[in-house]
Design a protein around this nucleic acid. Structure first.
Lengths: 252, 252
DNA sequence: GCCGATATTGAGACTGAGTTTCAATCCTTG
DNA sequence: CAAGGATTGAAACTCAGTCTCAATATCGGC
């Protein structure tokens, strides 16, 4: 559906965020938890929060956005933080990931309440996934800043995806079995992040520094071989056949 | 938004897909392209397709789903393909990614028309992102099948995210500058995939072999060759070197 | 070919999200 | 206090999505 203007949906709200926005969100969360997301109408929220339906839509844009209001703020904070960060890109992105996780763990009640709702409804799940994608886009952009070559762009995109995956892995683990302290979760994230950066950060650096990686777009030969128990001669035969056929192809 | 039952939204439709479903989608795409997505109502589509609004909702579940109907089918095909695949997991996931890309490139007109719409509307963009996430979940599940240790789970999740990122990178490139042949795009995907697998597949294998061997179905040999101006002998020499080195790897 | 059981379709009413318009009520600032 | 713009509320409207019920296919059995 999403009928309201996109800009209004995502951001458009007045920059001055009235103090009782928090109260509105609180009332909404209470209603959602009590009667479910779908069963709660915008009218219900309006009367519970003591404002009119109109202002509700004006301030949040949509019902989902009431639920994800603080997350939206966080996305923007992260964006701002990245643009003005002087750190080395990969480190900056990791720092951003830490901050995102902290955004959840500092408010466990809200995060868990939302998780229950998100788990139950496909529409909300998609909304949360879209949120993740926004972080990922920010990360990609920051990692590839100033570079235009295909290799670096790909490496940036992959690394951003990997960092987000690591973050989400840790986050979901915590959401499923809460009770862990914020510090313990942060520690898990550190481990996951170092796993990712050890595997991938090097290749981004290599790609970004221009010279080191093999494939210029032209003139390069890339051979990928995955032997899974076959003899070398067998593989060679297949390669020979591939070469004779002339084009790029896959055999097995 | 997304008011209808989740099951109905995602899948629920009758398994027997009437032949004129294609016609309905075609009519809808024409209307979307002509008047825009939002400006086209379900009534419009219904009269254009010669069915009732009721059956439209019954068959597709929602307006978005009319636009993404074939994609939804593809997701299920991929899921089925993965579960019954005997290949080595990473190879299977790469094959799935290839199939997804082919799902776009075999129908360039539809894919490009949809891309124009998706680009313009946040709601649709989110929908497409959710689709990507579904693929990613499938990949993660397949890569971590049979393993429960945290390390492998993380590696599977990261690798799945990376493969999806590589796929999307290539896909978006094609969507932005169409005209490239399907084969050329497929080749780009090969490069992107080998970048990813070279960086990450090893770590998944390492994590997984901590316990049980991922038991590559023996005898499966995948050889991907991309000659871009090099002589066959040169390539063969490199393959021979790769075999002597023993593991899957990349040479230049 | 006919008939009853079962899907499939269509029509129409209904809910609720999101938009729009306009009037009322704040704040400002002079 | 008065004129300016901004914030709010009320109400009507559109349209997606659901639900119910009647009409019509469709199909197996006779």
């Amino acid at each position: 559906m999403q009928r309201h203007t996109d800009t209004a949906a995502r951001r458009g709200r007045d920059t001055a965020r009235p103090a009782h926005s928090r109260g509105v969100v609180g009332a909404a969360l209470r209603l959602f938890a009590e009667h479910g997301f779908e069963a709660t109408t915008m009218d219900d929220i309006a009367v519970a929060a003591g404002v009119s339906r109109s202002t509700l839509f004006r301030r949040f844009g949509s019902k989902d956005d009431v639920l994800f209001a603080d997350q939206d703020e966080l996305v923007e904070e992260i964006g701002a933080l990245l643009t003005e960060s002087g750190e080395e890109p990969v480190a900056a992105v990791c720092a951003a990931a830490r901050m995102v996780l902290r955004g959840y763990t500092t408010d466990p009640d809200v995060a868990l309440a939302r998780y229950q709702l998100v788990r139950a409804h496909t529409g909300l799940r998609d909304r949360e996934i879209a949120m993740s994608a926004r972080y990922q886009a920010l990360f990609t952009q920051h990692l590839s800043r100033g570079h235009t070559d295909a290799r670096t762009l790909l490496a940036a995109e992959v690394l951003a995806a990997a960092v987000i995956a690591a973050h989400n892995h840790v986050l979901r683990g915590w959401l499923r079995t809460p009770g862990e302290t914020g510090a313990a979760v942060a520690q898990r994230l550190e481990e996951a992040l170092s796993f990712v950066t050890e595997e991938l950060a090097g290749s981004l650096r290599a790609a970004a520094s221009g010279r080191s990686r093999p494939s210029g777009p032209e003139g390069a030969v890339l051979v990928a071989v995955y032997p899974a128990g076959a003899s070398g001669g067998e593989v060679l035969a297949k390669v020979r056949a591939a070469l004779e056929a002339g084009g790029p192809q896959q055999l097995q």
